[in-house]
C-alpha cells in the first residue's frame, strides 16, 4: 500500500496528557499537559535528555501506561476510555512495538518469533503465517537466517527480527523505543531505514524514541521533550543535535 507521506489525516491525537509518579512531596511529573498529533505515513522522532519523560509519553500513547489526565485518541477512539480487554484488542489490531532489548524467545527461530504473532494474535493458519513470515523475512533480508535462534544471530539481525515481529501484522501504529541504541551505526541506519519504509510504503504511523541524533535526517518530524514538556520541531529539521541539545524552531 503506497501512501502519501505528507498526508495530514490525523490518526493519533493526544490532548493535555499528564502523568506523574509518587505522591506528596515526592511526586514527580514525568510528562505535563502534552498534546500532539501523529500522522499516517510519517515517521516521527521523539528526542530528549534522559529522564525527560520520553518513555513515559511513549507508554501513554501506546496504551501501556494510564495517564493522570488527558486523553489519547487513536483512529478517533479514546484509548484510556476503553476497558483493559478492549485496549488489549485494540493493541492487537493496530499497534506494533519495538523495545530497546530484542526480547526474543531464546528457543525459537527467527521464523517462529514472527509466526507466533500471527498464529497467536490473529489466529492465522500455519500456511498463512508461513507465507506472510516468508515475505517479511525477505523484506528484512533475513531469508537465509530464518532457521537461526537468537544466540546464533548478530545484534543487527536480532533487531531486524524484533522489527519483523512488530511489523508482521501490518499495524497502523508502530512504537519504537531506542531501536538503534544497541547497534553500530551501519546496522542502526539499516533499522531506521526499515522503519521509514514501513511508514512510507505501508502508511504506518511510526513514533521512534531515540537519543541518537544521526537518525534525524531519516525521519519526517522531530519532537523534543524536556522535563516532561513537549516542544515540536519543524518538519525535517536540518540542525543536528550536539552535546547540548538545541530545540528546533516551531
Amino acid at each position: 500500500m503506497q501512501m502519501d507521506a505528507r498526508t495530514t489525516t490525523s490518526t493519533m491525537k493526544a490532548c493535555g496528557v499528564t502523568r506523574s509518579f509518587g505522591s506528596g512531596d515526592t511526586k514527580i511529573y514525568a510528562i505535563r499537559n502534552v498534546s500532539l498529533e501523529l500522522h499516517p505515513g510519517q515517521i516521527a522522532l521523539l528526542m530528549g535528555p534522559s529522564g525527560s519523560g520520553k518513555s513515559t509519553l511513549l507508554a501513554v500513547l501506546s496504551g501501556l501506561l494510564h495517564p493522570d489526565s488527558g486523553n489519547v485518541l487513536a483512529h478517533d477512539q479514546d484509548l484510556w476510555a476503553m476497558t483493559e480487554r478492549q485496549r488489549e484488542a485494540f493493541r492487537l489490531q493496530h499497534f506494533g512495538f519495538i523495545f530497546q532489548g530484542y526480547n526474543l524467545f531464546a528457543a525459537l527461530t527467527a521464523r517462529e518469533q514472527m509466526e507466533m504473532i500471527l498464529r497467536w494474535g490473529n489466529g492465522a493458519s500455519a500456511k498463512e503465517a508461513r507465507e506472510k513470515t516468508d515475505d517479511m523475512l525477505g523484506m528484512l533480508g533475513l531469508t537465509n537466517r530464518a532457521h537461526l535462534r537468537p544466540l546464533q544471530m548478530s545484534g543487527g539481525e536480532k533487531q531486524r527480527v524484533a522489527i519483523g515481529r512488530a511489523l508482521i501484522k501490518q499495524p497502523g501504529f508502530v512504537f519504537a523505543d531506542e531501536p538503534t541504541s544497541a547497534l553500530d551505526w551501519k546496522h542502526g541506519q539499516h533499522v531506521i531505514e526499515l522503519l521509514r519504509a514501513a511508514a512510507h510504503d505501508q502508511g504506518s504511523t511510526i513514533l521512534v524514541v531515540a537519543h541518537d541524533s544521526r537518525i534525524v535526517p531519516f525521519v519526517d518530524r522531530v519532537l523534543q521533550l524536556e522535563d516532561g514538556i513537549l516542544f515540536e520541531g519543524s518538519e525535517k529539521p536540518v540542525e543536528m543535535f550536539g552535546d547540548n541539545p538545541v530545540q528546533t524552531s516551531f
Partner: peptide, 17 residues
C-alpha cells in the same frame, strides 16, 4: 522469559495464549 512475554502482551496477544 518475562520480557519476551511482556512484548507479546504489548502486542495484544491474549494472556490465555
Amino acid at each position: 522469559s518475562l520480557k519476551e512475554y511482556a512484548v507479546l502482551r504489548a502486542l495484544g496477544i491474549p494472556r490465555w495464549r
